[in-house]
Design a binder for these strands. Structure first.
Lengths: 136, 136
DNA sequence: CAGGATCCGTGGTGATACTG
DNA sequence: CAGTATCACCACGGATCCTG
C-alpha cells in the first residue's frame, strides 16, 4: 500500500458525497473552492499565515498583482472571515491585514497544496511539453 | 501554541519563497493552482481517486457539468499527467479514465481542501451574510 | 457512447487615472 | 499610503448541433 493510499484511507472522504445531489450544498461548496482557486487568494492566505502585513508589503511580496486585485481579493477574504483588516488613524495611512483563526486553519491544507505544486511542477511541465508535442 | 501553528511549524513552508521572486517559477506555480481551482478539476480528481470511471459515469456523478466541460477538463488533466485515458475499440465506444500516481498524490491535499471547505462552509456563509448586511 | 465545432454571455483580471 | 473609479479584454463556461 502506498503512502498516498494509506493517508487517504484515514479520512476516506468521498468527493461525490460532498458536492453531489444537494444542489444548494454543492453551490456553497464550489463557491468556497472558487475562492480558494482564484488567482491570488491562496497566496495571500499563505503569506498572512506567517504574520500580519500591510498593504504595500503584501503587494511587494506578490509579484504581478495589481493594486486593484490586491484590494479586491483582500475584501473577499475579509468577507469570508479569513482575514482581518485594521486601519490605523495615521498620516500617511497604515492598514494591517492579519489572518483569523479560520484563515489559519485554511492555511494548513492550502500550504499542503502549495508544497505539492512546488514538488511536482517540474514533472507537470514535462508532461505538458510531451503532450503538446505529441499532438504534432 | 495552537494546533494549526504546531502543524505549520512541522513543514514550515514559506509561501513567498514558493511563488515569489522567480517569475518563471511563480508562473508555473499559479498555473497549477488555477488548474486545481477551476470549476471541475478538483471534483474529477477526487472522484477518479476512488477508481476508474467512464465518461458517462463521471458526467452523472458531477451534477451540472456539461459534456463540453467534462471533455475539456479531462483533457487538461490528461495533459498534466494527472489522469490517463484508455479507449476501447468497441461499438458503442467505451472510454475509461483513471488517476495516475501523480493524480493520486494530488488527491491527498486536494481532498484535505475539500474537507476543509465542507467543514467550514456554514461558518463562511454566516460570515458573508454578516459582512453583506453590515454594508447597509 | 463519447466526443468535436461553433456561438455567445458573463465575470474575473489588468491598465490607467484619480483621491483622502 | 492605501485605496476607488472606469474602461477594456478575453478566458471560462454553458447551450446547441453535429459525427465516428
Amino acid at each position: 500500500m502506498t503512502v498516498e493510499n494509506r493517508m487517504a484511507s484515514i479520512h476516506e472522504p468521498r468527493m461525490h458525497q460532498m458536492c453531489g445531489h444537494d444542489p444548494a450544498e454543492a453551490e456553497a461548496f464550489r463557491s468556497i473552492l472558487s475562492r480558494i482557486g482564484d488567482k491570488w487568494s491562496l497566496m495571500l492566505v499563505g503569506m498572512l499565515h506567517e504574520g500580519p502585513l500591510r498593504f504595500t508589503e503584501l503587494k511587494q511580496m506578490t509579484p504581478g498583482i495589481s493594486g486593484r486585485m490586491l484590494t479586491h481579493t483582500l475584501r473577499q477574504l475579509e468577507r469570508d472571515g479569513l482575514v482581518e483588516r485594521e486601519v490605523f488613524a495615521e498620516i500617511p495611512p497604515r492598514v494591517e491585514y492579519r489572518s483569523t483563526p479560520l484563515g489559519k486553519s485554511l492555511a494548513v491544507p492550502a500550504l499542503a497544496i502549495a508544497e505539492w505544486a512546488s514538488a511536482h511542477q517540474g514533472e507537470i511541465s514535462a508532461n505538458r511539453e510531451r503532450y503538446d508535442e505529441a499532438a504534432d
